[in-house]
Write a protein that binds this DNA or RNA. Structure first.
Lengths: 184, 184
DNA sequence: AATTATATAGAACGACCTTTCTATTTTAGG
DNA sequence: CCTAAAATAGAAAGGTCGTTCTATATAATT
């Protein structure tokens, strides 16, 4: 087994468990057990649990953006709608409940590690993403529109916990259409 | 000090700390310390930490609805907008970050206590609330509109973590106006 | 004043947490 | 084949967790 495979397994297992039970609800023992790995293997790759959390967040952010980029054609007629749809598909495929970045911000707020800032960075990037989209489409109130779409995605994620990804996405698409139609 | 005051103090302190650092991020030691109370006083009022979490959620739900009821005149022209505004004011006053009920659902999913169902109950009630509002206004697609407004509130709460309650609420009000205007 | 309920401080419990250590074994590259 | 890196199992340290216990003190009710 190559050097990086163990690390990848750990990241994958950790992400799944953190998402399922929360960062504080999962112990390293459970992670190394499900990853079929020794304690010291984890500590050889990650200096601490906090660092593991950080790496998980970074990995998740990369996956999210490559997912979005793969599904949104920036030059199409409706990149906004495509983004909402892609987000919905992402939610569905993850059988998502809640948002890992938001949970990280909440759980680690006020502690002296990088976790919170990494998570906030992801959210900031989401805002920028929609701002760029608005510029491209020549919308006047870029900032407002970007904030509204970010709010829409955040709401969709939350609603997924309540009514499932498919229904939540249907509603957000309907709302997104209305928004795009009635914004200069 | 009367019998119930200690219990009330505990509930108040616990709610603040749970909200600030998450349910799993706060120990009973910290709660009894900040409440200036002995260990056994807590256990005389609450049989377990899980039960304390349950009572905190129930208390929070009551406070939320009495807040909304106090601010929303059901018979006015724009009960939807009033509800969005009231929710925004609630977020601001709580200096809110994240949603306690959503966090409870996520943190305690799959455990064998009542916590998750209490939290889900709150969310279900939110949906029903908007459904009743839609009926009252004679809207055709009650369910859709209710879901959309719930999504809006959920999104506002999430966005509060990122851009603050005031700005988040401004955006949700704008979106709500558009929605009401363009729905039969 | 006597009784009963409630609160107190603080120790103790066993379980689990993150992290470190040791000593052995496996794996790959020169 | 040999060597150096990487992974192994398992124990141990040092801490915190939720919970229980004990024994004392404070309040409120009769």
């Amino acid at each position: 087994m190559a050097r990086s495979e163990k690390k990848d397994t750990l990241l994958e297992v950790a992400e799944r468990l953190f998402y399922e039970h929360g960062f504080r609800g999962v112990g390293l023992k459970q992670i190394i057990s499900e990853a079929n790995v020794a304690t010291m293997t984890l500590y050889n790759h990650f200096p601490s649990k906090d660092n593991l959390v950080e790496e998980v967040l970074k990995q998740r952010e990369e996956r999210y953006w490559s997912y979005l980029d793969a599904h949104v054609e920036m030059d199409s007629d409706s990149p906004f709608i495509l983004a909402v749809k892609a987000h919905g598909r992402w939610l569905k495929e993850q059988s998502y409940k809640g948002d890992m970045f938001l949970r990280a911000i909440e759980d680690y707020a006020g502690t002296d590690n990088e976790i919170e800032s990494i998570a906030r960075g992801h959210k900031a990037k989401l805002l920028q993403y929609f701002q760029r989209l608005a510029q491209r489409k020549g919308k006047e109130n870029e900032r407002d529109l970007a904030n509204q779409f970010t709010l829409l995605l955040e709401g969709t994620t939350s609603m997924t916990t309540l009514i499932g990804a498919e229904e939540a996405t249907e509603h957000s698409i309907a709302m997104a259409r209305t928004l795009v139609r009635h914004t200069s």
